[in-house]
Amino acid sequence: MGASTGRLGLWVSGCIVALVILAGLAAPMIPYDPVADVNLDGALAPPSGDHLFGTDAQGRDVAMRLLKGTEAFFLPGLMAAALATLFGAVAGAVAGYFQGPIRSAVLGVLQLLDTLPRLVFIILVCTILNPSILLIAFVAAILFIPANATVIRRKVEALASEDYILAHVAHGFRPARILVYHILWLQCRPLLIRQAMYVFGYVLFVETALAYLGDYGVQEPAPSWGNMVAQAKELFGIGAWPWLFPAVAIVITIASFLAFGNLVARRAEETR
């Protein structure tokens, strides 16, 4: 991929990421009553001036529900990304930089977590506990820690033998500072951003998958992109507008988060 396509991709994906974040921040401030929005006479209307993305089977505005639907994954995704990245970074750094029993213990726990198939485990948790989307995101975060830790551990191990890290050691810089500032903050930041983006995208994916598979996560009448797409099951062959827009939004959002994370990390690697 050329530098210009990379730059364009970075801009496009960056704008979409910014838009989703903006929507996620704005949504809680916009008043919306899903019950009052029901208007059976105007059901399944195509996009128009009144209803930008049309209406669903109960005549509710798809655009509005799309915006309010970001609430379903925004905060959980943010929390999961932060948790998985933070703990992944700490675990990866410890496993990569230190020797001895602590390293072995951390690696053991990570390996154990890594054996759990993510989606299957989350569905299992859902069937047993029927938890809130926040708890589902929390479980997703924990399941993502090993992947994040592995990425960071590899990087830390590669860096530990670099001449300049040896020089930092020889000059008497504090080991904690070398690890946290020089290695994690300066060198691993792009990787951490990438991993956080992955986790965020994954939470949206999980929310969608759960809503589609069964009555997990965010429940009607509260909107979520997942339960909007799930309407397709009943509306197949009747009307496409209610689920087409959320489906497109999901694909574009996840793709943009992954692409943005990848491009940020690649750019950092290239400019080094």
């Binding site: 670099e162 001449d163 300049y164 040896l166 020089a167 930092h168 050691v169 020889a170 000059h171 008497g172 810089f173 080991p175 020089h182 300066l186 060198q187 080094r272």
Partner: peptide
């Protein structure tokens, strides 16, 4: 740990690789 830097330190070959590229 208490001796690095304060008591003894080193200048290595390959100066470019001995400096942190991001600082």
């Amino acid at each position: 740990r208490p001796l690095w830097g304060r008591v003894a330190t080193a200048v290595f070959q390959n100066p470019r690789q001995s400096l942190d590229p991001l600082m």
